[in-house]
Design a protein around this nucleic acid. Structure first.
Lengths: 193, 193
DNA sequence: GTAGTGCCGAACAGAGTGTTCGGTTATGAA
DNA sequence: TTCATAACCGAACACTCTGTTCGGCACTAC
C-alpha cells in the first residue's frame, strides 16, 4: 500500500463520514463541519487532503470499478452485456451507490457515471458493426438515458424489481430499437460464424 | 389580473434575475444577494415573496405549460406524440429551459419534469392498450429516461441536431421496443397476420 | 532512535442567510 | 382627488459555513 497509514486512515474516515451523512441528510445539506465532526478529524486536516465537499465525493468514484467491464468477454454476442452485471453490482453496493448516485447525491457523480456508461455503450455498438456518426451518438444517449432512468428509479425506491427484472425491462425497451439501427447502419456481416 | 401591480413586478424581476444569473454562473453559484442586486429589490422584499432560491426556481415552472398536451388529438395513432412538439417548444424557449433544466439548473426542476413527462407517457401507453403493471412502469421509466437524455444532451450542446432529428432518434431508439411490449401486453387482437 | 511528516485545534476573515423594524412610496378604492 | 392600505426599502443583526494559518504534539517509516 502506498503512503502513510495515517493518511489512508484519515482519507477513509472522511470518505465514510460523507457517505453516511449523505444518506442521512442528502448531499446539499452536508457541511464540511459535519464531515470533520463525524470523521473526528481536524479542520486543517480535512483541507490538507481535499479541496472541498465535492472533491471527497468524486474521490469515492474510484471504488466503482465495475464500469471497466472485463474486455475478455468477446465471446458473447449478446448486446448491452453490461446491463445485468451492473444492476447486480449496484444492488450489492447499494449503500454506497445510493449515496453517490441518488437524488440526494447531488449531480456531479451522476454526470460522470453517464459519461463512463456512454463510452461503454458506444464501444459495444461500434463493435457490433455500427458506424461512428451523429445518429449513433444520439442512440447512445437514449440507451444510457433509459439505463440511468431505471437505475435512478430503483435507487429512489420507485420499484422493487430485481436486477434480472430491471435488465429485462431495459432490454425490452431499447434492444429492438438498437437492433433495428444496427441493421440499417451496420452495413455488412453482422454475424460472423 | 390578480394582485398588486408592484407584486407582479417584483416577482417578475426576481424570476428574470435568477434565470439570467443561472445562465451566467450556474444555479449553485447564484446567491440570494446576487438575485436582489440584479433585480434591484430590497432584501426583505425578496423574503416576503419567496422562501429561498429554490422557491424562485420552481415558481418558474408554471410558465412551462406545454407539458399539458392538448387532449383532443385522439385521432393520431402515432405513438409518443409528445416528442416532436416538445423538442420544438424547447428550442423556442431555449433560454428559459436551458436555465431551468440544464446541468446548471440544479436538479429539482429536472425531477419534476420527469414526473410530468412520465404521466404523459403512461397515459399514452394505457391509451394504446397497455395494462397497468410494474413492467409498464419500468417501460415508462426507460422511455422518459431516453427522452430526457436527448434533451439534456441538446441543452449541454453535445449535439446540434434539429428537433426533427432528435425526434427521429428518440423514435428509432424506443419505438420498436414499445411496440413489441404493446404487442405482448395489450393482448387485444392486433393485426395478427 | 530520529527525522520527517501528518495531525490537532483554536483563531480568524470573509461571505451568505434569513429576520426585524421604522420609515417611505406606490396602489386601488371611495 | 383623497386616503387607508399594502408593498417596498435598507440598514442592522445574529447566525452558520467556509477556507486558511500556525505553533505544538504524535506517530510513522527508515
Amino acid at each position: 500500500m502506498s503512503g502513510d497509514r495515517r493518511v489512508r486512515r484519515t482519507r477513509r474516515l472522511i470518505q465514510e463520514a460523507l457517505v453516511t451523512l449523505i444518506l442521512d441528510k442528502g448531499y446539499d445539506a452536508v457541511t464540511v463541519t459535519d464531515i470533520i465532526d463525524r470523521a473526528d478529524v481536524g479542520r486543517s486536516t480535512f483541507y490538507s487532503h481535499f479541496t472541498d465537499k465535492q472533491d471527497v465525493l468524486l474521490s469515492n468514484l474510484d471504488e466503482l470499478t465495475v464500469l471497466h467491464r472485463s474486455p475478455a468477454d468477446g465471446g458473447s454476442d449478446r448486446l448491452l452485456a453490461f446491463s445485468l452485471p451492473m444492476f447486480e453490482h449496484v444492488r450489492e453496493q447499494e449503500r454506497l451507490v445510493r449515496a453517490l448516485l441518488g437524488r440526494r447525491g447531488g449531480g456531479p457523480v451522476h454526470a460522470r457515471g453517464e459519461q463512463l456508461l456512454a463510452a461503454v455503450v458506444r464501444d459495444e455498438l461500434l463493435g457490433a458493426g455500427a458506424r461512428p456518426s451523429a445518429t449513433l451518438e444520439l442512440l447512445v444517449v437514449c440507451v444510457v438515458g433509459a439505463f440511468m432512468g431505471l437505475l435512478r428509479a430503483w435507487l429512489e425506491g420507485e420499484t422493487t424489481a430485481s436486477p434480472a427484472e430491471l435488465d429485462a425491462a431495459f432490454r425490452a425497451a431499447v434492444e429492438p430499437g438498437v437492433r433495428a439501427v444496427l441493421r440499417e447502419s451496420g452495413n455488412e456481416s453482422p454475424s460472423h460464424h
